[in-house]
């Protein structure tokens, strides 16, 4: 059993796959051992003896649930990260969980909900390895009462060309090994903060919601969204919106009443950084 502590949740991971254990050590190896109860017990296992030796495949289990189809063993480290995301998204009902990156600076959070291929993770890795704190690459964990967003100790999942791009921007960044030919293409997880920095983080208020869209042909273009557009997109990006019912509705309503909401198209992450810092953070109280 390997302990994986992601800050708010504690996983027990059973795996005999060296690449998985190696990736855990790279990403979570600096977390000190703590005597905490487990929130989730997960396993990565071969489904059969045949699939252990012939075109080996691996399955993810959380207790007795296996939410994904088996994948080639070479993708096991990525499967573990996706499985851990699933555990949180499928079982956490005390917070509104929005499929969104969360970046924080000066005690103010900006949410980045986005579709796959939007450049969200590339932007998150760039900012998170620069002067921002990455509260999450995948899930905004929002308290319905305080409306504050909490940090998770997780890596950023980069795909395809963004892997080499982030390595070029941040040559000293720590990467888990690349998983080739997954359903998302080549995937690598990059560590965007160390445990010492994570322990300094606390829940913070959300000041803006920005829907990013990478467009190689477009300089930074900014569109202000109406409350209705922001409400619609934010609620559609929430994993547990319908489960929370009226509480989810109220939470989204309360968020958009307090935030500025934008859609941006960009081809340069540095321009986005300047926009966020100078136009959003500086203007918010």
């Amino acid at each position: 059993m390997i302990d994986v502590n992601i800050g708010q949740y504690h996983f027990s991971v059973e795996s005999k796959i060296e690449a998985v254990n190696n990736a855990i050590d790279i990403i979570y190896g600096d977390v000190p051992a703590q005597d905490l109860p487990y929130d989730f017990k997960v396993r990565l296992v071969f489904e059969s003896l045949v699939r252990r030796f012939i075109k080996p495949q691996i399955s993810f289990y959380s207790d007795q649930h296996s939410p994904f189809k088996p994948l080639p063993v070479s993708q096991a480290p990525a499967l573990l990260e996706w499985g851990m995301n699933w555990c949180v998204a499928a079982h956490e009902y005390s917070k509104l969980i929005i499929h969104s990156a969360v970046l924080v600076k000066d005690g103010k959070a900006i949410l980045f909900p986005a579709l796959p291929g939007s450049g969200k993770s590339t932007l998150t890795a760039y900012l998170g390895l620069s002067s921002w704190s990455t509260y999450s690459d995948e899930m905004a964990m929002i308290d319905p009462v305080t409306l504050e967003v909490s940090p998770l100790y997780r890596p950023v999942c980069l795909k395809n060309d963004s892997i080499s791009l982030v390595k070029k921007w941040h040559p000293n960044a720590i990467f888990a090994p690349v998983c080739k030919d997954t359903q998302k293409g080549d995937v690598a997880h990059v560590k965007v903060m160390d445990w010492q920095n994570y322990t300094q983080l606390s829940p913070v208020p959300i000041v803006a919601v920005v829907f990013p869209k990478y467009d190689a042909q477009s300089d930074l273009t900014i569109f202000q969204l109406s409350d209705l557009e922001a409400f619609n997109v934010l609620s559609k990006n929430a994993f547990n919106y319908n489960v929370l019912g009226r509480n989810g509705f109220d939470t989204v309503d309360n968020i958009i009443r307090r935030t500025k909401n934008f859609e941006i198209r960009f081809n340069d992450v540095r321009e986005v950084d300047a926009f966020l810092t100078e136009d959003i953070l500086s203007a918010s109280l």
């Binding site: 409400f231 009226r246 509705f249 309503d253």
Partner: peptide, 27 residues
């Protein structure tokens, strides 16, 4: 149902208590 007037005048958000879905009337 629960109905909210969006503060910028862009419309109404309506929470449907039966299905837990949200509907919008766009101004």
């Amino acid at each position: 149902s629960e109905v909210r007037l969006l503060s910028d005048g862009s419309g109404l958000a309506i929470y449907d208590g039966y299905s837990c879905d949200t509907h919008f009337i766009h101004s």
